[in-house]
Amino acid sequence: MTRSSLSSSFTVTVNGEPQLLDLDNRTTLLDALREHLDLTGAKKGCDHGQCGACTVLLDGRRVNSCLVLAVAAQGRSVTTIEGLGTADRLHPVQQAFIDHDGLQCGYCTPGQICSAVSALDEVDRGWPSAATADVGAEKITLDDSEIRERMSGNLCRCGAYVNILAAINAVAQ
């Protein structure tokens, strides 16, 4: 890549498949997924990192794909909602959202689910949150306030929060 170049060719692994992309450097990871790889599960809500609808996993960690430049994700591994489960084999968090009616319109749901999967992983790794009473404690006790705090980066305009909380609680049990 030459330094004057305003576009770049690079590879990103998406849902386990290496993808060769040649994109304007301005392209966000969200737009690369939606407009160039036809993965429209991740949604564009605010496009400013404030709503969480675009949440995907980057090297296994949840991120706002609207604030990641696709070119900066080169060589890394992305998991979208399409890579978490299939219609025949849903991810446990996907199944829990159905079982507990954790959605109304569904627009924020892919982001909610990717975020929840990653949040539960963070709990397993012992990461504290702002709701953790003792930040030095080695083990996290996952209660409603912990889940609400850890999911605060995902907004739901339909207000399905009560059932989203129930769905995540069910998976965490």
């Binding site: 990192g49 969480g52 949440t55 980057l58 960690r61 949840r62 991120v63 706002n64 604030l67 975020s115 990653s118 949040a119 963070e122 504290p128 949150s129 702002a130 953790t132 930040v135 850890r150 605060s152 980066g153 995902n154």
Partner: peptide, 10 residues
């Protein structure tokens, strides 16, 4: 932990 969201902190 008081700032931003889990996604942004990552």
């Amino acid at each position: 932990l008081a700032g931003a969201s889990g996604q942004l902190r990552n």
